[in-house]
Design a binder for these strands. Structure first.
Lengths: 153, 153
DNA sequence: GTGAATGCAAAACCTTTGCAACTGG
DNA sequence: CCAGTTGCAAAGGTTTTGCATTCAC
């Protein structure tokens, strides 16, 4: 519950928020800590349920607001792989998302060994700020495990 | 309303559907024609509204069913760029989607001049079936145009 | 002090489902 | 004929909104 492991990167979360003109509220800090503590790629609902455990008065609207603030200041990524709830991800390293068509689970795929991936040839009037790469397929043997333990990620 | 320009690719839509064990209903053909006729990246709602003009009895559930069938047999792509409705796209050439943070509009970005983009180094237990690349940023001068004429794509 | 953020509940939005009737193969 | 598909309406899940209160700066 202490904030001294915040944030993952060198800069402080509060400073990051301030840079974007966003206020450093206890709710935002809490939502960020919750997200860091959750494995995989939780939905806003999952973050909410977990956040309530230690901060029962927090509301869904605040969780959405906080997640948006965290995305805006660049410490959280938003993941849209299909219909259904948007997922959130505190892993800010360069990676793609693999979504299993069978079990629905989302896995991080490192891009360090995938040279040139971000080199997309874009018309000059487009200013690209970020690139999301989503892979779809089957996670085969991994899926056998996750299929039993989890439903849809 | 004739189906002789169907489908875009060489194979017939009906054959494609049959290959996946899906039936070639008039609704599915109609939804596909509507999608081919719509520019940009319509949502299911937009397809529905347009489809109703020439087939007033068609229902939203059928539009979703048809779009799913078309995606399943590989003649339509499903596009998820943010929260909000899933978009659909009849352009099956290899391309990424650029989503403007300002106007929300989605543009196709050709990948022909972007070598090696699909070369993502994936753990061996993952079988990749397709790759979606979504770019986010600003469409600058283009945005000035589309911002007035359209709302959110 | 003041505008931004919160909490709550309600509304809005998007998608799926259940079921009887229909239809393609 | 029969399983797959449709249309309808209702339910389900996700996200946003309005507003009074509270809080960060």
């Amino acid at each position: 519950m202490v904030t001294d492991h915040l944030p993952t990167s060198g800069e402080s979360l509060n400073k990051r928020l301030a840079e974007k003109g966003l206020r450093a509220t206890s709710q935002r800090q809490h939502v960020y800590e919750v997200l860091l503590g959750l494995r995989d790629h939780p939905s806003a609902e999952e973050v909410f349920m977990r956040a309530k455990q230690s901060k029962p008065e927090i509301s869904m609207a605040t969780v959405y607001n906080s997640l948006d603030a965290l995305v805006k200041c660049g410490v959280v990524r938003q993941v849209n792989v299909d219909r259904g709830a948007t997922l959130f991800c505190s892993n800010m390293s360069e990676h793609a998302h693999f979504c299993c068509d069978d079990c629905g689970k989302v896995f991080d795929v490192d891009l360090k060994n995938s040279p040139r991936v971000p080199e997309v040839d874009v018309p000059s009037e487009f200013q690209v700020r970020k690139i999301d790469i989503a892979l779809h397929g089957r996670c085969t043997d991994t899926c056998a495990d996750c299929g039993r333990k989890e439903t849809i990620a």
